[in-house]
Simulated scan of single mutants.
Amino acid sequence: MASKKGFSMSRDPLSVSKKNNSFITEKYNSIFDYEKFEIIDLKAELIESEEKIYNNSMNIGKATFEIAEELYNVNQKLANRGNGVYMEWCSSLGINKDKSSVLLKKYKLFLETSKREIMELPIPVVKTLTSKNSNFTQEDILEVLKDKKPSLKIKEIEKRYSQVANKKSCGIQEAIIVESPEGKLERELKLKQGKLDFINRDIAEREKNLKKIREEREQILREISEIEKNIKVLIQTI
């Protein structure tokens, strides 16, 4: 059987038997060692994913989305099961690290856009869109996806961002260059005046609150005095 790019399907986990000159497909046999990595509790689920991926890989062009989806789900399930378990699992299916990485990235882009056409994007475009330093928005991704030449479109968008960044940089440099000593002092003066205005407003507010507190204190003292008088009157009548 010819190998697909990124896949090695030389082993045949689908056992077959010959009967009456016809091949009968039997139960899928996994070769991944689930006991070794102590993930017995997920064995049944993951073997089901193995079988789906293997079967779909026979027609990789049509089933890329299904394979990417299964890989993403398995990757999430094995995320906290130890370093390297996921890739060991992929290797048992003949899926190498690069192929897995690209499919996971494509599926993550699908989750952002809900567009299955993402699976058809060239690998370099996918890597650019998902790079750590990428600033591409969802609108950018959709713009790339709609274009007949996504590789050229993404370069166009990158150039656009670069020009905006350069303009901002030049604007900052120009502002620094044209600012005179007088302008700098005026800017500092405005900052100081702003702080002073804030302090004055704060003082006025505090004085207002203090006056209110003093009035409340006087009221309470008067009430206390009235209560004391009433107590004395009651004592005298006893």
Results as ranks from 00 to 15, higher is better:
Glu26Asp: 15
Ile220Ala: 08
Asn73Glu: 09
Ala44Thr: 13
Asp202Phe: 09
Gly194Phe: 04
Lys4His: 07
Lys159Pro: 00
Lys229Cys: 04
Ala165Thr: 01
Leu210Asp: 10
Glu156Lys: 04
Thr130Ile: 03
Arg116Ile: 13
Leu145Pro: 15
Ser8Gln: 09
Asp41Phe: 09
Ser162Val: 00
Glu69Ala: 07
Lys4Ala: 09
Arg160Val: 00
Arg201Trp: 02
Arg160His: 08
Leu109Phe: 03
Ile24Cys: 09
Val164Ile: 10
Glu70Asn: 14
Ser92Tyr: 01
Ser49Gly: 00
Ile47Gly: 00
Tyr34Val: 05
Arg81Lys: 15
Leu234Ile: 15
Glu158Leu: 13
Asn56Lys: 08
Ile95Ala: 02
Asn200Leu: 15
Val164Arg: 03
Asn21Pro: 00
Glu48Tyr: 11
Asp12Asn: 14
Arg214Val: 15
Ser49Cys: 06
Glu215His: 08
Lys148Tyr: 10
Glu112Trp: 14
Ile39Arg: 00
Phe110Ala: 03
Lys211Gly: 13
Lys229Glu: 15
Ala175Leu: 14
Ile199Lys: 10
Lys153Pro: 06
Ile224Pro: 00
Asp41Leu: 12
Ile24Phe: 09
Ser49Leu: 03
Glu35Trp: 04
Gln173His: 07
Val144Ser: 05
Leu191Thr: 04
Asn73Gly: 09
Ile141Pro: 00
Thr237Gly: 03
Ser15Val: 14
Ile157Met: 04
Phe65Met: 02
Asn80Ser: 14
Ser22Tyr: 08
Arg222Asp: 14
Leu185Asn: 11
Ala68Ser: 15
Ser15Gln: 12
Ala165Met: 01
Tyr107Leu: 03
Lys232Thr: 12
Ala175Gln: 14
Lys106Thr: 02
Thr64Met: 13
Lys232Arg: 11
Ile203Leu: 06
Ser91Gly: 12
Val85Gly: 02
Tyr107Cys: 02
Leu185His: 13
Gln76Asn: 12
Thr113Gln: 04
Lys108Thr: 05
Ser57Trp: 06
Gly183Glu: 15
